[in-house]
């Protein structure tokens, strides 16, 4: 079996038939996505491997290239030099602290050169004894969408495609299935006889998206946050198909954000602006929450429907909800173990 087939095979194992069909549907007919995806994987890998090999065999020459800024990618400009170094950096998880600091310095400098922006990109690690959890009160949400707006602004979401991590569904009272849930309402809320339910990335304990990623570009951190290394992602979209909750988003085009609206307080694994062709999703606002702040959606919610906190702290609000309310999670039977619960008063 060729490498390419192996990868496709592995991915297939994790996909549900319906998801497979959905991917195919997206692609307009033929089951080409797998081939293309696997190609992308292989090409990228080969790219990296060949280039790295070239650098290693000509180690001295390679080092010289880097130092003198005469990169083969063109020009002697500082920008080309930085981009060249960025291209060969490691997966974030494998970087040493120095390497992380170095890529942050490069990325901040590149923003300056390319957009004249001054972002601050953190690499704040998970805290010991912290496991984030989230609860959503479906008897409180009124469908106002303040959370959606706050999320877009906080996380530098693409305004061009109206990208949103959060979806709010309007559901009729008494309905016994979510199939009829409507995520496309725009009228005065709350509508008579309806309730509202929000979804986003659930940061599963057993995230299927992580398992299917063929290049290890997405993983679960120790505080439970499932993150994406945007610079390692190859955009094959397997994770999108594997997520039973439609939690992941793909950048079909280059994200557009008005310069004066870019949130400059960023995290490497969080809200720093993404490129075309990579996956992204809710990160529980890692850039905020690891500093003690509430996620933007929780802070913006005027109804208190959103509860966030440390699951390992028995005195936290989230633990009060779990202990005292009737909670449930979506598709519990899949064993994904979301750290996102719903409850009613």
């Amino acid at each position: 079996m060729s490498n390419r087939e192996k990868i496709a095979e592995k991915v297939r194992q994790w996909l549900k038939p319906a998801d497979r069909r959905r991917l195919r549907r997206d692609d307009g007919g033929a089951d080409t996505r797998f081939a293309e995806g696997a190609d992308a994987v292989m090409n990228k890998r080969l790219d990296r491997r060949q280039a790295l090999k070239a650098m290693v065999t000509g180690a001295a020459a390679g080092a010289a290239v880097v130092q003198t800024a005469c990169s083969p990618l063109g020009g002697g400009s500082e920008k080309a030099q930085l981009n060249w170094e960025e291209y060969f950096k490691k997966n974030y998880r494998l970087m040493t602290d120095e390497e992380r600091a170095a890529t942050v310095t490069r990325l901040e400098r590149l923003s300056k050169l390319e957009q004249n922006a001054d972002p601050h990109i953190q690499t704040t690690p998970p805290q010991k004894g912290v496991l984030f959890g989230y609860a959503f009160n479906i008897s409180k949400c009124q469908g106002y969408m303040d959370c959606v707006k706050a999320c877009i602004e906080e996380n530098n979401l693409d305004r061009g495609s109206n990208m949103q991590y959060i979806r709010i569904f309007e559901i009729e009272n008494g309905q016994d299935g979510l199939a009829s849930a409507n995520g496309d309402f725009y009228h005065e809320v709350p509508a008579e006889g309806h309730y509202y339910l929000g979804t986003q990335c659930f940061h599963c304990e057993n995230p299927p998206c992580v398992k299917v990623c063929p290049v290890g570009a997405t993983w679960k951190e120790d505080d439970g946050i499932v993150v994406v290394d945007y610079d390692w992602c190859i955009g094959c979209r397997y994770c999108e198909a594997a997520c039973p909750y439609f939690g992941r988003r793909f950048n079909w085009s280059t994200p557009q954000i008005p310069a004066d609206e870019v949130n400059q307080e960023q995290h490497y694994l969080g809200n720093r602006p993404r490129k075309k062709g990579v996956m992204e999703k809710c990160t529980f606002c890692v850039q905020r929450t690891r500093k003690g702040k509430l996620p933007a959606c929780v802070e913006a919610c005027p109804t208190g429907a959103r509860v966030f906190g440390n699951l390992l702290d028995p005195d936290s609000e989230i633990r009060y909800v779990l202990a005292n309310k009737k909670v449930f999670r979506l598709k519990e039977e899949l064993g994904t173990e979301p750290k996102f619960w719903y409850f009613t008063d």
Partner: peptide
Amino acid sequence: FPKRWPVHNPSPTETRLMDGDGHDKES
């Protein structure tokens, strides 16, 4: 709580919560 207009419109894509044709049945 007062009735009011949402402060943002929803995203045009993925407006259903689940596959309409029933995930479970297929698998």
